[in-house]
C-alpha cells in the first residue's frame, strides 16, 4: 500500500488530492493520476469480484430453494448481482482493462472477493442469512461509495445497484423473521447460520482503524467511512434485527460507549470445515490475511462455474 506521505510527495498526486478534497469530481482518465487510477481499479476489482462470486454461491442455494416463489426471488437476486459485477467490470474496461480477462482469464485465487463468498451456503437458512448479512455489508460499503466517491461514472452507476440491493436485504430479513417465528428445526438452522456468518461479516470489513494508518481510498475520496465506522453501521442494522427475533449474536450495544461492542476476541481462528469460530483462539490480522489468501473451500468451484471450460463454446462443463 502506498503511504499518504509518498502520494503527497508527488506534485501531481498532491494537486489532485487537494482538488478532490475540495469537491472535484473525476470524470475521465485524463483527470486521473497513476495513484488515483490504481486505487480506483483496486476498488472496482473488489466490488466486481464480490458481486460476481456471490452469483454461484447464491445459485447453488437457489437450485434447492424450498418453494417456487423463493426460487424466483433468489434467481432474481443472482441476476442483479451479476449485473452489478458487469457494471464494475465495464467501468474498468473503459479504463483499459480487458473485461473478458477479468472474468475468464484469472486463476481462482486471483479474484479479490471477501472470504465469506468462498464458503458453501448449504441450506436455505444460510442463503437468507447471506442476504440479510452479506448483502447488508454490501449495502453499507456501496452506499458509502455512492455518497462519497469522487469518480462520477461510478456514482451514477450505483443508483441501480443501491436500489436492487435493498430488495435482497428485504428478502433476507423477511425470511429470517419467518424462520425465527417458525421455531423448531428451521429456527435452529437459522441460529447455526448466524453463528458462523455474523463473525464472518464482521471480519469482512477488514483491519480495525487503529491498525490502519492511512487509506488511498479515503485520500482520493473513493469512499467516505473507515472500516470501523462501516462495521458499526452494519452492526447497528443487524444486531437489533437479530435481537428482535430472539436470535443470539456475539455483539451488543454499549450505551456508555455509544457504540456496538464485539463480545469475543476479534479476530479469532475459524474452522471452515466445521463452519465454527474458535472464540478461545485469538489470532493476529496477519493470520487473517493468510487465511484469506489461501481462500476458502468453494473458491475453485465457484470460479470454475463462472468460467465454464476455458475454450468457452463447446466443452462440457467441469462443475
Amino acid at each position: 500500500m502506498t503511504a499518504v506521505k509518498d502520494l503527497t510527495a508527488d506534485q501531481a498526486e498532491r494537486a489532485l488530492i487537494e482538488k478532490i478534497q475540495a469537491g472535484f469530481t473525476v470524470e475521465s482518465e485524463e483527470d486521473m493520476t497513476p495513484g488515483y487510477k490504481k486505487a480506483l481499479l483496486t476498488q472496482l476489482t473488489v466490488q466486481g469480484d464480490t458481486e460476481l462470486m456471490s452469483g454461484p454461491a447464491y445459485y447453488l442455494a437457489a437450485r434447492d430453494a424450498p418453494t417456487i416463489n423463493s426460487r424466483i426471488a433468489v434467481i432474481a437476486i443472482v441476476h442483479d448481482e451479476l449485473g452489478h459485477a458487469n457494471i464494475a467490470y465495464r467501468l474498468m474496461e473503459d479504463l483499459g482493462v480487458d473485461k473478458r480477462w477479468l472474468i475468464y482469464g484469472r486463476e481462482p485465487h486471483e479474484f479479490k472477493h471477501p472470504y465469506g463468498f468462498d464458503q458453501p451456503l448449504e441450506n436455505w437458512a444460510e442463503m437468507v442469512v447471506a442476504n440479510g448479512f452479506f448483502d447488508r455489508a454490501g449495502i453499507c460499503l456501496l452506499s458509502d461509495v455512492h455518497e462519497n466517491t469522487s469518480y462520477g461514472p461510478l456514482r451514477r452507476a450505483l443508483v441501480k445497484v443501491d436500489r436492487e440491493e435493498i430488495l435482497h436485504l428485504r428478502h433476507g430479513e423477511s425470511w429470517m423473521r419467518r424462520l425465527a417465528k417458525a421455531g423448531g428445526e428451521a429456527r435452529e438452522a437459522l441460529q447455526r447460520a448466524v453463528d458462523w456468518m455474523f463473525p464472518m461479516t464482521l471480519e469482512w470489513f477488514g483491519l480495525p482503524d487503529h491498525l490502519k494508518r492511512h487509506s488511498d481510498q479515503l485520500v482520493y475520496r473513493l469512499k467516505g467511512k473507515t472500516n470501523d465506522q462501516l462495521r458499526q453501521t452494519w452492526m447497528a442494522a443487524t444486531v437489533p434485527l437479530c435481537e428482535s427475533i430472539g436470535i443470539k449474536v456475539p455483539a451488543h450495544y454499549d450505551a456508555a460507549k455509544g457504540e456496538y461492542v464485539i463480545d469475543y476476541p476479534f479476530p479469532c481462528q475459524y474452522d471452515p470445515e466445521a463452519k465454527r469460530w474458535l472464540f478461545d483462539e485469538p489470532i493476529t490480522w496477519d493470520q487473517v490475511f493468510e487465511r484469506w489468501k489461501a481462500r476458502g473451500p468453494m473458491n475453485q468451484r465457484y470460479v470454475e462455474m463462472i468460467q465454464g471450460k476455458a475454450d468457452g463454446l463447446f466443452g462440457g462443463r467441469r462443475w
Binding site: N69, I72, A73, I75, A76, I77, L167, R170, H171, S174
Partner: peptide
C-alpha cells in the same frame, strides 16, 4: 410475471 417480490 416473474416478479420476485410478488409474494412479499
Amino acid at each position: 410475471i416473474g416478479c420476485p417480490a410478488m409474494e412479499m
